[in-house]
Design a protein around this nucleic acid. Structure first.
Length: 585
RNA sequence: UCCCGGAUCGUCUAAUGGUAGGACAGCAGAUUCUGGUUCUGCUUAUCGAGGUUCGAAUCCUUGUCCGGGAACCA
């Protein structure tokens, strides 16, 4: 009856909310434009790892393609600038898109596949008098372009004959010139109010090896020249891109028109995703990696898909997040809590439960025989009994969370304290009799007694025991390192301060490493990357890079919501809720 | 001083001339062997000024504010 709850794939939910692009594409399909076909593309430049912002674009592009009959979304690498690009990025990007759950068909495409065609088209434009070779210096060109208030002035080379242009351009390709000696420019309008239209560059000379074409080309096309034409070659119908390309659309259309390409792809812009307390530019992320502020592109604190995957995010959670934030032209900053909500929702449904004590405090049950051992069957998931149970051992000595004991608890405290009775999850009721301290006051252990009649955890006489604690048998506990993550930056917008580098705003507490954590024995066999809920604490997974059978390492993906932390704050109780306490991020 | 966009609860996003809705966050309560989950209820928004209209978030005029644009980056 509620099987759908588990079967539902949130990312592929049919009830995608309306958005202006979807609406527009649906209209095109209904009107029979392009025979109802929809072709989109996701066009990353292979110069860095994909991040959550790209996920929005990926979901949008692949999702929009599904509106067509037929529909297709290409993965196309925009590899027109060899000096920053690399095959390792090509591979990482494909891995991430695949992990997110999308399929781009037979093979990935590359703008570099079209270099020859682009070159032929450039010649066509030269012959039509719509492009020319300029031989001014970089500075002269920039100067000649003018600015927002001042019109441009024409290059002295603008009037070169077609023959001369053809000759020069051929020699540019032949590698006869050094970097920067010449460029190919489109001949549009130096008086245009749109600076982008003041004879933009089409090709620059770059004697640099390309990760795919090697040394075949000493000239490389610029983005504006390559992108629209690549779209046209691939039969792209709707070319979706972010807002900063709005200024490029007139140029995008100009090239297509000048070449007489038909049918023409249509560029549509949408607002990119911004998240608070994070930076979302490959350049900035690269800097974090290179300067060692994080352990790599896949550091679990990074907003990269690789980092999020390692941290324990699921593709489903990311996809439903992308769906939930919607698509519009208005620029904004999405609240992290929305991502966290989608994450918890997915993780809650799928994660098996286990107990782990992060900051152990020893408990001795005085009336529990030294040699006794009770194994309890505890549900793998309380909402899905069909997922079975796991066995957890109880012995005389065990560990509970240090923060679950307070010497002088405030009102509404349901956990341990002098004389307080609590339930050990799935096992029994214990009462705190004494707190053993060192001379310096440091808490060493708790002496408790248990009620043997409460075996299983139920109060035999129906007495109310509100507090339930997680615990681990000392003798059976498995040791592990646990890494807690917090937001990488301590301010909402690290880029908002012109006078200070964004790295000034890194959160010094974004990583907290806990050693000597005590895990329930079954966790020893956890598969890296597989989500687990450590009850009352959060969702965790064994680290796919560092965890080993003899040295377990777990990442906290995200803490559980912690309403006690809120209450404690309101009550003015300090520190009590620290261990599992929800820290944003 | 120019060009291109944008402006709806705290945040994201609907409403396409006809009851401003949803999600998140927040608050209050219920249930609970996770202070989790689940459930219920509540609070909160059309940038300003004019106009058109029986009726405007939506159309017109105007103003204001915000973002992007002057790379041989994408």
């Amino acid at each position: 009856m509620n099987a759908s709850r588990e079967d539902t794939d949130p990312g592929r939910d049919d009830a995608t909310p309306p958005n202006f692009i979807k609406e527009l594409v649906e209209q095109d399909v209904a009107a029979g434009v392009r025979g109802g076909q929809v072709v989109t593309r996701f066009p990353p430049e292979p110069n860095g790892y994909l991040h959550i912002g790209h996920a929005k674009s990926i979901c949008l592009n692949f999702g929009t393609a599904e509106l067509g009959a037929p529909g297709r979304c290409n993965l196309r690498f925009d590899d027109t600038n060899p000096s920053t690009e690399d095959t390792s990025y090509v591979e990482a990007i494909q891995r991430d898109v695949r992990w997110l759950g999308f399929d781009w068909g037979a093979r990935a495409l590359y703008a570099s596949d079209y270099f020859e065609q682009l070159y032929a088209w450039a010649i066509q434009l030269i012959e039509a008098g719509k492009a020319y070779v300029d031989s001014q210096s970089e500075e002269e060109i920039r100067e000649g372009r003018g600015n927002f208030y001042k019109p441009g002035v024409e290059s002295p080379h603008r009037g070169r004959s077609v023959e001369e242009n053809l000759d020069l351009f051929a020699r540019m390709r032949a590698g006869e010139f050094k970097d920067g000696e010449h460029v190919l420019r489109a001949k549009i309008d130096m008086q245009s109010k749109d600076v982008k239209l003041r004879d933009p560059l089409m090709y620059r000379i770059r004697h640099v090896a390309h990760h795919r074409t090697g040394d075949a080309w000493p000239i490389y096309p610029m983005y504006d020249w390559a992108h629209g034409q690549s779209d046209a070659i691939e039969g792209v119908t709707h070319s979706l891109c972010t807002l900063e390309f709005q200024n490029h659309r007139p140029l995008y259309d100009w090239f297509l028109g000048a070449l007489g390409l038909d049918p023409r792809p249509r560029q549509i812009e949408f607002a990119r995703l911004n998240l608070g307390f994070m930076v979302m530019s490959k350049r900035k992320l690269l800097q974090l990696v290179q300067q060692g502020h994080v352990s790599g592109w896949d550091d679990p604190r990074m907003p990269t898909l690789a980092g999020m995957r390692r941290r324990g995010f699921t593709p489903e959670a990311i996809r439903s997040f992308c769906e939930r934030i919607g698509v519009a032209k208005r620029d904004g900053v999405v609240d992290i809590s929305l991502l966290e909500h989608e994450l918890r929702e997915d993780l809650n449904a799928r994660s098996p439960r286990a107990m782990a004590v992060l900051r152990p405090l020893k408990v001795v049950i005085e009336n529990y025989p030294e040699d006794q051992e009770d194994w309890f069957d505890v549900p793998v998931h309380p909402e899905y009994p069909e997922r079975g149970t796991r066995r957890v051992p109880l012995t005389r000595e065990l560990y509970v969370e240090r923060d679950d004991y307070m010497e002088d608890p405030p009102r509404k405290w349901f956990r341990l304290g002098p004389g307080r009775e609590v339930r050990l999850r799935g096992a029994c009721l214990i009462t705190c009799r004494e707190a053993v301290r060192r001379e310096n006051g440091e808490l060493v252990e708790l002496r408790c007694t248990w009620d043997p009649a409460s075996r299983g955890g139920a109060a035999p006489d129906g007495r109310k025991v509100k507090g339930t604690l997680h615990w681990v048998s000392a003798r059976h506990a498995v040791d592990a390192e646990v890494r807690l993550y917090d937001r990488l930056f301590s301010v909402e917008n690290p880029l908002a301060h012109d006078d200070r580098p964004f790295t000034d705003f890194l959160n010094p507490d974004s990583l907290e490493v806990l050693r000597g954590c005590k895990l329930e024995p079954g966790l020893k066999d956890a598969t890296p990357g597989e989500p687990q809920q450590f009850e009352r604490l959060g969702y965790f997974c064994a680290d796919s890079v560092d965890s080993r059978a003899d040295a377990l390492v777990f990442n906290r993906t995200i803490a559980l919501r912690d309403s006690w932390a809120k209450l404690a704050k309101k009550l003015g109780v300090g520190g009590a809720a620290k261990s599992g306490g929800k820290r944003k991020g």
